[in-house]
């Protein structure tokens, strides 16, 4: 039976949120542990880092699905009863919001572009919840600073508000401690 539960966890860089999220998934004892990765390699070091993580997870019994954009394409690859970790909202948003920048037409500059992707994301997350035992969504805290990139931060805030409202549980990670906010 699908559990339909969603947990949101957010924290600073190296706060321990990924390890915490992985633990949640492994404790769910689902048929499969799915690592839905939105990270994208922009240089060699990152490519190696991603590959090393993918291999580590493989030996721990994870199935990795790499989906930097178009999260909906991962949906057909999920099976009923999976536990899914999506890592993470911030990289997905950067990939989608700036998709097309190489040709001078980033999504952020096109009216309605991100709105469409946002609607698709909500639908996809509902779809993932419908089949999965547990969905854990990981994100970052990047709002407690000067506004460096207003469209990005505005979108991230909007997405986080929605995720917290939709989730059964929401946690803020600080220095290895997960504070339950909901």
């Amino acid at each position: 039976m699908a559990g339909n539960k969603m947990i949101f966890i957010s924290g600073g860089v190296r706060s321990g949120k990924s390890a915490w999220a992985e633990n949640k998934i492994l404790h769910a004892k689902a048929r499969r542990s799915i690592y839905l990765a939105s990270g994208r390699a922009y240089d060699n070091e990152m490519a190696q880092r991603i590959e090393r993580h993918r291999q580590d997870r493989f030996y721990d019994g994870w199935t990795t699905i790499e989906q930097p954009i178009h999260l909906e394409e991962a949906l057909p690859r999920l099976k009923t009863g999976d536990a899914v970790l999506w890592d993470c909202v911030t990289t997905w948003l950067a990939n989608e919001l700036y998709a097309g920048w190489e040709t001078g037409t980033p999504c952020a500059a096109q009216p309605g572009c991100m709105e469409k992707k946002w609607a698709a994301l909500q639908e996809t997350l509902h779809g993932i919840r419908a089949v999965s035992e547990l969905l854990v969504v990981v994100s970052n805290e990047v709002m407690d600073d000067f506004i460096r990139d207003e469209p990005y931060q505005r979108w991230l805030g909007r997405i986080h508000l929605w995720l917290v409202a939709e989730s059964e549980e929401a946690f803020e990670m600080e220095n290895g401690f997960a504070y339950k906010r909901k």
Binding site: M143, D144, D145, I147, L156, G157, R158, L161
Partner: peptide, 9 residues
């Protein structure tokens, strides 16, 4: 006082 990061609602 209502306090928090930007775009937090």
């Amino acid at each position: 006082i209502v306090f928090g990061g930007a775009f937090n609602g």
